[in-house]
Design a protein around this nucleic acid. Structure first.
Lengths: 206, 206
DNA sequence: AAATAATTTAATCAAATGTTTAAAATAATT
DNA sequence: AATTATTTTAAACATTTGATTAAATTATTT
């Protein structure tokens, strides 16, 4: 680290980096201090406690994921086919820039499920009342195939974009990919995933 | 817990449960002892240290995932279409019985990537030398479509089966599913995922 | 039944860890 | 320039936590 940032920012950036990699329980405040290049007491001086700092980092990370998810769900400028291209690419952008974020969020939620309802106001109808859901339902009705709950398709988009990042160390190990190969692999998925999703929705490729 | 098991087993079962949910760093040996209903000192009496006990739990969990993966990859009794049905269902079976396992394994690997190479002998050619890979490559060649690396398809199988479990708390929260709904949702995917995968491989549904 | 081995318990230890404190250093204000 | 406020530091504190020890209990063997 070191960068010429105000101390407060240096601490938060270091905290983000370490929390994202090691999780709350696996992170020691002294590691954050070292990463930020500051005296350990400054963490408490600026953020009161490890937990307060963590909450900040977690909420920011969750917002980032949540924001892209909302774009994915509620945009109504584009028709379904165009939107699928857009959202898959958008999601890959976000996760590529924060590869540790999904596993961090999911891991902390699992370790502490109570907080999900308290801290985060996720409406239970987030998916089913979304524009995207409606568009998919219409498309699936028209295509006259086996009825499929559009939730499956939305989950498939998330699965196929996010999972490779979550499983990156294993994938790299099983395929002898280096970091560049992996990046290339993800790039290929920018066009492949929309293609597969459209096929699930019986949308003709043009 | 309590069950009438030998102390040694009680400890390992309790350890598995807590490690799987909280991870190594988030688990206190006293919590394991309490869960097992035994005196804290017995953990060290039977397993020497928290780390030794953890390694045992981790290796067993990894073997379980790994074993199903190997079945997935190396079976050559069945042709591709039948095999896809089989392996998707098999994988859903395994993960349904251990819903916390995938996130546990992936999280611990991320927190401690060095151990992946040391502890686990994953050959780097695990995927590309597999029977499944060969079958997919043949199928994709014959179908005469855009060339797609079969790795993508294998990753898609894993993504679409595993990710819903990894994201379960979020999915439940966004869709108002209860546990039964979620189970039903997974059951639907037993037939849907093979259908989608075959479509990606241009295999005709019969 | 006596002796020995194995298991369990309560108490304690040492190290790690989040946090506080009081003084020192630096910056801002008058 | 003197004073005040802010930031930084080194040291220490209180808890937590993994581990150990020695005694007590239970089981096994002779």
């Amino acid at each position: 680290m070191e960068k010429d940032l105000p101390t407060e920012k240096k601490i938060k950036e270091a905290a983000r980096k370490i929390f994202h990699k090691k999780g709350y329980a696996g992170t020691r405040t002294r590691d954050i201090a070292e990463e930020a290049g500051i005296n350990p007491a400054l963490l408490n001086y600026y953020y009161r406690s490890k937990e307060k700092l963590f909450d900040l980092v977690f909420d920011e990370g969750f917002s980032e994921i949540s924001a892209s998810l909302n774009i994915l769900l509620n945009d109504d400028k584009f028709d379904l086919a165009v939107k699928i291209d857009y959202i898959v690419n958008k999601y890959i952008d976000v996760v590529s820039k924060n590869p540790d974020l999904p596993l961090f969020i999911l891991g902390e939620i699992k370790a502490n499920p109570e907080n999900l309802k308290k801290k985060l106001g996720l409406s239970g109808t987030l998916l089913t009342t979304s524009k995207l859901y409606e568009q998919m339902r219409n498309q699936l009705d028209f295509s006259g195939s086996i009825p499929v709950n559009p939730i499956h398709i939305i989950i498939n988009i998330l699965s196929m974009t996010i999972f490779p990042f979550v499983g990156k160390p294993l994938i790299k190990n099983m395929t002898e990919m280096n970091d560049l190969d992996f990046e290339q692999f993800i790039e290929e998925r920018r066009t492949l995933i929309p293609m597969w999703i459209k096929s699930m929705l019986k949308i003709q490729e043009k």
